[in-house]
Design a binder for these strands. Structure first.
Length: 581
RNA sequence: GCACCUGUAGUUCAACUGGAUAGAAUACCAGGCUUCGAACCUGGGGGUUGCAGGUUCGAGUCCUGCCGGGUGCGCCA
């Protein structure tokens, strides 16, 4: 539901929604009513395209009859250029059917928001001590999607890959690396290397001691140690980059601000907290006690920022991080796409940052949490042996399954000129797309069940279905030998399936604004699925190539628009399209 | 012990943050290709939204209490 709120981010133009809202609320005020229009897309097709639910509450407040008030609102409302039909239903709903002339003005290319913001998007953040595994998938692809959407709407996006490249475990790894004389070859299997180092660490006290010394040397800036460290990081990071490239993730080296980059700021951060009078020593550790973190009995809950041995913690590092993001980057919004289990941590960090003046009321700090990926047994997704699944292995399997699917579907029989190379590329697009879409299409806040068969199905809300719908829009033009660029940009729909399709296309901008605000990619998926559904209904009911003159032009133009939105939407999800399949 | 999240068709997920008869997909049943891709479409059955109260014109959504599941909670990140 679109409703202006006190949040400044709602001021962004929501196009159709905001236009309807403005008009209706203007009618409210002319009638002496207070309240919002409470505008939303119609919940059922027979109610039109949009519905306003605000009359009932407003009438109630004024002590007037809702149905009569609804009629007065309609009488006072000027929507002649926008709507072709207005009606009252039930206890006082106003149903709106848009005019074809109005929706024809919509553009399929997303426009910039009225207000531009500087948005820091924190996502992916793998631990460079190990190989990426499925646990990193959600943060990486959800964050990437939202970053793309924000960018498309004209915001300044600063991607931040907060990689785990610092801390105790690197002492262990560097010591092991020195001992083994490890080259990049032996680091090819990072997972294995980590396991062996850990084994060595657990078995040998002398090794442990040398590892601890290595950490101290590293953190105090020992030149040799830093060279070794950098070597390790480079190799590990190139593993990640390989996966980003394969997944179509926009992150590059330029987006990395790892934990190590805050090393020198940690002490300053703690000093800053001390100056603000926020620190209390407790059992030798430096803590911040805030009123909002007291238990019911009034027992204080500390946020520890410095250990009794002088070491810093990841709360300290996240605070230092905010100093950079708010202080140096001048962010208006900072969005963290991080596992839901860290909710309390972020609540604490944001609260301390506010108390310390590191952030301020003008900056929106949001933890965008996501749930766990589960196997079909409803337990966290693991291999049969109970190990974490490497992301690389998951993607390999996805592509392998997609390839088998295409062979089973006899794609080459239907498209005889598709050669093996194109088929392989198609399998890559579908396989990777299916994994990403399965994740992106679910509400990120809850856990979800990972199911190969479901995600690779051509039926339902899946990547293959949408890719198929897109390829159908393309094949019309190939089949008809028509160059889409010769078609008009705007056409006025005539038949109802055309109009329903056009309404969905016109709503694209509103949808993107909503996704940019809320950070839920599944809303974009649901939109695209609905659009594809409207298209296939249109396709069934409205012959395109066999129709003539204006009708043919109109339907071709709608087909082209549908393809443009599907392709753009999938691109924002980070999923490639295929011209035929 | 305290806190947060969560419970919706057999299954996997929605429900635009309080709106109309809780929607899709899947599975099942019945229809539809000499006509642009049937990888599709149309229709049908399938629900006490965990349970019980409350708030109001109106509750899957908000409040309270139970029941079940998950996660977090002073020196790991």
């Amino acid at each position: 539901m679109f409703r202006p709120t006190e949040s400044p981010y709602w001021k962004a133009k929501m196009h159709i929604r905001s236009l309807l809202c403005e008009r209706i609320e203007a009618a409210f005020s002319r009638l002496g009513l207070e309240g919002h229009a409470l505008l939303q897309a119609a919940s059922r097709p027979e109610f039109g395209d949009y519905q306003a639910n605000g009359v009932m509450a407003a009438a109630k407040r004024a002590g007037r009859n809702p149905q009569e008030v609804a009629q007065q609102v309609i009488d006072a409302l000027d929507l002649t250029d926008i709507a072709q039909d207005l009606s009252i239903a039930g206890p006082g709903f106003i149903n709106i059917t848009l005019a074809p002339q109005f929706i024809a003005q919509a553009s399929t290319t997303p426009r910039h928001s009225a207000e531009r913001h500087c948005v820091v998007v924190d996502y992916s953040g793998p631990n460079l001590a190990k190989e990426m595994h499925v646990g990193h998938l959600r943060s990486t692809i959800i964050g990437d999607c939202i970053a793309r959407v924000l960018e498309t709407l004209g915001h300044k996006v600063i991607r931040q890959n907060h990689v785990g490249d610092w801390g105790t475990q690197f002492g262990m790894l560097l010591t092991f690396m020195a001992e083994q004389g490890a080259s990049s070859d032996s680091l090819a299997d990072l997972e294995n290397f980590y396991r062996e180092a850990k084994q060595r660490f657990d078995d040998d006290e002398d090794f442990q001691e040398r590892s601890r010394r290595a950490v101290v040397e590293l953190q105090s800036g020992d030149a040799d140690m830093l060279v070794q460290w950098q070597k390790f990081i480079d190799i590990s990071m190139s593993h990640c980059q390989g996966l980003y490239d394969r997944l179509g993730i926009d992150l590059t080296d330029a987006d990395i601000d790892g934990e190590s980059s805050y090393n020198d700021d940690l002490k300053h951060t703690v000093d800053h907290l001390a100056k603000q009078g926020l620190l209390t020593e407790s059992e030798g550790a430096q803590c911040v006690f805030l009123d909002e973190f007291k238990s019911k009995k009034g027992e204080p809950q500390p946020v520890i920022v410095q250990k009794s041995d002088g070491g810093f913690l990841y709360s300290t590092s996240d605070l230092a991080c905010l100093r950079r993001r708010v202080g140096d980057f001048k962010a208006d919004r900072v969005l963290y796409f991080v596992d839901a289990r860290q909710a309390l941590h972020f609540k604490q960090v944001f609260a301390v940052a506010a108390a310390a003046g590191i952030s301020n009321a003008g900056v929106e700090l949001v933890h965008m949490p996501f749930g766990t990926m589960l196997g079909k047994d409803n337990k966290p997704f693991k291999t049969r042996q109970g190990a974490l699944v490497k992301l690389a292995d998951l993607l390999d399997e996805a592509v392998k399954r997609a390839e088998q699917l295409l062979k089973d579907r006899e794609v080459q029989r239907k498209n005889p000129d598709i050669d093996d190379a194109e088929l392989a590329a198609l399998a890559e697009t579908i396989g990777i797309g299916a994994v990403k879409y399965a994740d992106l299409s679910k509400n990120r806040t809850s856990d979800y069940v990972f199911d190969w068969d479901q995600m690779l199905s051509f039926d339902g809300n899946t990547a293959p279905y949408l890719l198929y719908a897109y390829s159908r829009t393309r094949s019309i033009f190939t089949r008809g030998g028509i160059d889409p660029s010769t078609l008009p940009e705007h056409v006025v729909s005539v038949d109802e399936p055309e109009r329903r399709l056009a309404v969905a296309i016109a709503g694209y901008q509103d949808l993107l604004e909503q996704v940019a605000q809320d950070g839920y990619p599944h809303q974009l998926c649901a939109y695209l699925y609905d659009l594809a559904g409207r298209f296939t209904q249109f396709y069934e009911q409205c012959p395109i190539l066999s129709s003539e003159d204006d009708t043919k032009i109109r339907r071709l133009a709608l087909t082209k628009q549908t393809g443009a939105v599907l392709s753009n939407g999938l691109h924002l999800l980070g999923i490639g399209v295929a011209e035929r399949m």
